[in-house]
């Protein structure tokens, strides 16, 4: 009974397919459709074919998808550390935790995101992590700010500079009148004067590439 039904269903499908004038969709339409899928569907559809795999690899994350890193972890139980993906429908999925984040005494912290890539700080190291293809690279060290981090209010963000093909990290804390801009490509930090003070500075949203610090008073 069961195989017969399946066979019937298959025939129906093939019949329906012959109605289609073009059996193949142009790549631009496929990309348009793929860009509307959530990460778990995309990860499965990489198995469709090699061209689909590379299209999905190049896809940017959907704007609505938010990555949340759970911090409810006791220091000695690493396996309780979880990274969850919440899509725009509100469903939650656990993501595998990259090895560099698994440090018994240091909790990872998301410091910013851009183009679907997350800036994650673990101790004094900053990593760029793409949860979609699991790429995780050490971007830059914040060793030189070791003492600046205590007791200050830190604002941070990540942005992409298409001119130099570089991801840049912007850090500011309430104790200083400059922001630090770190280049992930050159592993260097640059000081830029920042004429605002106070705790009302927040990281603005990143749209595409540019990063902005928004002063609530101005």
């Amino acid at each position: 009974m069961e195989p017969g039904r399946r066979e019937h269903k298959k025939n129906q499908k093939i019949e329906a397919k012959s109605k289609t004038q073009f059996p193949y969709l142009p790549e631009e339409i496929v990309l348009r459709i793929l860009s509307k899928l959530s990460i778990d569907s995309l990860l499965r559809f990489r198995c469709v074919s090699k061209p689909w795999h590379s299209s999905i690899h190049d896809l940017k994350f959907k704007q609505q998808q938010v990555i949340v890193m759970s911090k409810r972890v006791e220091k000695w139980i690493i396996k309780n550390l979880s990274i969850q993906l919440i899509d725009h429908r509100g469903s939650i999925k656990n993501l595998p935790v990259p090895k560099p984040f698994m440090q018994p005494t240091k909790l990872p912290e998301i410091m910013g995101s851009c183009n679907g890539i997350l800036l994650v700080r673990v101790g004094l190291d900053c990593f760029l992590w793409n949860p979609l293809n699991r790429c995780c690279t050490k971007a830059i060290s914040i060793e030189r700010f070791r003492y600046n981090f205590n007791g200050y209010f830190i604002v941070s963000g990540l942005c992409y500079d298409s001119y130099t093909d570089d991801y840049k990290i912007v850090l500011w804390n309430s104790g200083h009148c400059f922001v630090m801009v770190g280049s992930c490509r050159n592993k260097t930090w640059t000081e830029i004067p920042f004429p605002y003070y106070g705790r009302k500075v927040r990281a603005g949203p990143t749209i595409g590439g540019p990063f902005s610090l928004v002063d609530k008073e101005n």
Binding site: Y24, R44, V48
Partner: peptide, 30 residues
């Protein structure tokens, strides 16, 4: 184009990749 693409995405999102391959007429080159 927008509403139809969205509907197609909604229709295939929970399908196995083998079905998606068949629907889109994609050749499996793996």
């Amino acid at each position: 184009l927008e509403v139809t693409s969205q509907k197609i995405a909604d229709s295939i999102k929970d399908l196995p990749h083998q079905d998606v391959r068949e629907i889109f007429g994609v050749e499996n080159d793996y």
